[in-house]
Write a protein that binds this DNA or RNA. Structure first.
Lengths: 250, 250
DNA sequence: AACAGCGTTTCCTAGTGGGAAACAAAGGAG
DNA sequence: CTCCTTTGTTTCCCACTAGGAAACGCTGTT
């Protein structure tokens, strides 16, 4: 058994145990000498993966695992809930549908389902967008804390990716207001020439917006007629996900 | 950096990353060759601590962490919430106050605060009790699924620790009913000669009882007058914890 | 007071994880 | 469409880390 497996075994064993376990019983069960088990446990305690009860000297799972578990839970919930919606929309529109998440002061493409027409728009999962350009970035910016937005804008120089990228601070804040009042954002070649996108906010159970649903593709396929239809589709899809996440619109 | 530290670093990095990370970027950041990082990641994937996106080949936190995180969360919440209550009760009664948790078909002493009068009753943290004897065991038995209780009783031979230990099945089920109707359990030398205990149920936010509050000590200190007072104290303490856990009594 | 059991420390050495390089596969550039 | 870069994966060998054994200090029991 490698050390990595040993670490996993220890953590799992501590997790399924009723409460606390000592070095000796862990070593006996895993079949190692307690010296080695102790060394590993000490490191795990330092890293917060395990806590040691100072009075009993026994070990249990630690707060670092809680944090990581929460991360997994959040990701799983939103993707699991969102996937059927994305699939349906992708099928109906034949375009790429994606989920964007705000991570700190940036927007990130967290998940996407490609449309059947495979003209690549090279938006890879994990790609980061600024909050001033593109359907995902602008929407998540619009629903971000305005004070924080002003801070960001005053500190960073907005780069003009295309002719349509908004770089003026006041113009951007106005655009944010429009987005909030309409309930959706539109990007017309703001991040990249030839691309078009529509996005709508996803509300979590606290009513906060930290992710959004986005429909995007080559501009030539986004005719006015289609866009008029698709805006409702995106808003409805985002609402559906919001409700499934436990959002209560009041 | 030892392998254990590497594992922890990788997990934490994957947790704080916006979404997914690849072998190369992880190896670059941690300063190791990607071959070693890859080997470790492969093992972590096998153990469920990490998941690999099959289409992007990139890595993220896995379901095993979710399970462990949940365990930590549950334990932390109940202990954190319960500790002040236990301290106050221990201070008022000068006896030992403890939290029992049902783990499968047994009761376990999860946490305790010793009274100042240190006559040892050797109930160590982690000790297991049967569901038929003692204030903790009986209470958690009484609020357990009755079908399951009947199964257990039919399969296991109840051992008579003291004269007062209930070993007859029907007598025990009757005692359970009394406990549920009164809302507390009393043990008079059931597990050990000379010990006395009072316990009351703790309800979680779903209204389920899987833990209880228990006040225990040497029998000679549990006079009738004191017990009459302390029953209310235990019930109130347990209620307080239940409410803090999010229980809604309707 | 002696003992037994636990967590902890130390030391040495065998086995394992790290480094380097090469392979496979996928994407981007032209 | 093809070349080229980049990334995930595999292989091999060696340094060094993790495991074994024994001993220490401490707590609690008899």
């Amino acid at each position: 058994m490698s050390n990595t497996e040993k670490v996993m075994w220890l953590l799992k064993r501590l997790g399924e145990a009723p409460y606390e376990l000592g070095v000796t019983e862990l070593a006996d069960e895993i079949g190692y000498e307690k010296s080695g088990v102790f060394k590993t446990l000490k490191l795990l305690v330092q890293g917060g993966f395990v806590v040691q009860n100072q009075s009993t000297k026994k070990y249990s799972v630690g707060p670092a695992l809680y944090r990581l578990g929460t991360v997994y839970g959040e990701r799983k919930v939103i993707l699991q809930v969102a996937e059927p919606v994305l699939k349906a929309m992708s099928y109906m529109t034949e375009e790429t549908v994606s989920i964007g998440i705000r991570e700190g002061d940036d927007a990130i493409l967290a998940y996407k389902i490609e449309g059947p027409i495979s003209i690549r728009l090279e938006n890879r999962i994990g790609r980061m967008y600024p909050l001033n350009a593109g359907a995902i970035g602008k929407l998540l910016g619009a629903y971000h804390n305005e004070e924080r937005i002003r801070e960001i804008l005053s500190q960073t120089e907005l780069t003009k990716n295309t002719q349509n990228t908004i770089v003026d601070q006041e113009e951007l804040l106005l655009e944010y207001e429009i987005i909030r009042s309409r309930g959706y954002a539109i990007s017309d070649e703001e991040n990249r020439e030839g691309s078009f996108g529509i996005s709508a906010p996803i509300y979590d159970q606290n009513g906060d917006v930290w992710s959004c649903l986005c429909l995007a593709g080559p501009k030539e396929r986004f005719t006015k007629k289609k866009v008029d239809n698709w805006i409702g589709l995106v808003i409805n899809g985002a609402n559906e996900i919001s409700l499934k996440l436990g959002y209560n619109p009041n």
